[in-house]
Amino acid sequence: MAEVKINIQEEGPSSFDLYDEDGKVGEMVFDIKSTDLTVYHTEVDPEKEGMGYAKLMLDAMVNYVREHQLKVIPLCPYVHLQFKRHEALYKDIWNKVREV
């Protein structure tokens, strides 16, 4: 069973790291400044693609953001696409004003 663990860094980007029986198989890289969580990149090992792992990290990030009253700046193409496809699900946390 896959598990997402948050890895907060004082200096440099933080990440939501995804682990399964094979070890670390994915990550979602982000940074928090003030009340914004900026997602830069989501990656899953090629042999693990298509298993819903990116969605597990997305769900973990969304839960974290809501729990900590943050807004998301989705610079990551995957996260941005999911926010656009399912705007009603994410409108409460999507910071469109700060998007590039």
Results as ranks from 00 to 15, higher is better:
27 E>L: 14
27 E>C: 09
28 M>C: 14
28 M>L: 15
28 M>T: 09
28 M>I: 05
29 V>S: 09
29 V>T: 15
30 F>A: 10
30 F>K: 08
31 D>C: 07
32 I>N: 06
33 K>P: 00
33 K>I: 02
34 S>G: 01
34 S>Q: 11
34 S>A: 07
35 T>L: 07
35 T>I: 12
36 D>K: 12
36 D>Y: 06
36 D>Q: 12
36 D>F: 03
36 D>T: 06
36 D>N: 15
37 L>V: 14
37 L>K: 07
38 T>D: 03
38 T>I: 14
41 H>P: 05
41 H>R: 11
42 T>R: 01
42 T>N: 02
42 T>G: 03
43 E>L: 09
43 E>H: 08
44 V>W: 01
44 V>H: 01
45 D>V: 00
45 D>M: 03
45 D>N: 02
45 D>L: 10
46 P>N: 08
47 E>M: 00
47 E>Y: 00
47 E>D: 06
49 E>W: 01
51 M>Y: 03
51 M>N: 14
52 G>F: 08
52 G>V: 07
52 G>K: 07
52 G>H: 08
53 Y>R: 04
53 Y>W: 07
53 Y>Q: 02
54 A>Q: 03
55 K>L: 11
55 K>C: 02
55 K>Q: 13
55 K>F: 11
55 K>R: 14
55 K>T: 13
56 L>R: 02
58 L>C: 10
60 A>F: 03
60 A>Q: 01
60 A>G: 05
60 A>Y: 01
63 N>M: 10
63 N>P: 00
63 N>F: 09
63 N>D: 15
64 Y>A: 06
64 Y>Q: 06
64 Y>E: 04
64 Y>F: 15
65 V>T: 15
65 V>I: 14
65 V>G: 08
66 R>H: 11
67 E>D: 15
69 Q>R: 07
69 Q>P: 00
69 Q>Y: 04
69 Q>M: 04
71 K>M: 14
71 K>S: 13
71 K>Q: 14
71 K>E: 13
72 V>I: 15
72 V>W: 10
72 V>C: 12
73 I>N: 05
73 I>G: 07
74 P>R: 03
74 P>I: 04
75 L>M: 13
77 P>V: 08
78 Y>P: 03
78 Y>V: 04
79 V>H: 06
79 V>K: 04
80 H>G: 04
80 H>N: 12
81 L>V: 03
81 L>D: 13
82 Q>G: 00
83 F>D: 01
83 F>N: 02
83 F>A: 05
83 F>E: 01
84 K>F: 00
84 K>H: 00
85 R>L: 12
85 R>N: 14
85 R>K: 15
86 H>Q: 13
86 H>N: 15
86 H>W: 07
86 H>R: 14
87 E>Q: 07
88 A>P: 00
88 A>I: 05
89 L>V: 06
90 Y>L: 11
90 Y>E: 12
90 Y>R: 11
90 Y>S: 10
91 K>M: 11
91 K>Y: 09
91 K>V: 14
92 D>C: 11
93 I>R: 11
93 I>Q: 10
93 I>T: 12
94 W>D: 12
95 N>D: 15
95 N>R: 06
95 N>P: 03
97 V>P: 00
97 V>K: 14
97 V>N: 09
97 V>T: 11
98 R>K: 13
